[in-house]
């Protein structure tokens, strides 16, 4: 139970390290890096590897953007299991709706409150 805090830190940190290597070594922009990580998460779930990672690392696996790809695939697969091919399309946002709705909601609210500041 307690070990999840350690594995969360280490796994989450390591996924970020992969991102940093894509920044500095592969010279990719943040947008390209994040897209690659999302696709990776989605493929890992297709191979059935991401869920075990969540069991092992908790938020270390659910907080990095890879989990977004995983959640999309997971939702699609769960629906596909029930309804066949059509489920691939309909199930996509089943699991991951909270992240996107929270981002839209808080982003919109922020635009009422904040102004960008050009400080260092």
């Amino acid at each position: 139970m307690f070990s999840i805090y350690i594995t969360s830190f280490i796994v989450g940190g390591l996924i970020c390290v992969i991102g940093q290597l894509l920044f500095d070594v592969a010279k990719l922009t943040p947008a390209h890096t994040l897209c690659i990580l999302v696709v990776t998460g989605s493929v890992l779930d297709g191979l059935g590897l991401y869920e075990p990672l969540i069991d092992f690392a908790g938020t270390g696996a659910t907080i990095p953007i890879t989990s977004f790809g995983n959640a999309l695939t997971h939702g699609a697969l769960a629906e596909a299991e029930k309804h066949g091919l059509i489920g691939v399309l309909t199930g996509m946002f089943e699991v991951t709706s909270s992240g996107i709705s929270a981002a839209i909601l808080f982003g919109f609210i922020a635009s009422f409150i904040f102004k960008p500041k050009g400080s260092v």
Partner: peptide, 18 residues
Amino acid sequence: HHNSIERQFRYPIEYGAQ
């Protein structure tokens, strides 16, 4: 003007790009 140029050529001012 820092804010107007950065948002046009690069990212929004508050975006955390390294």
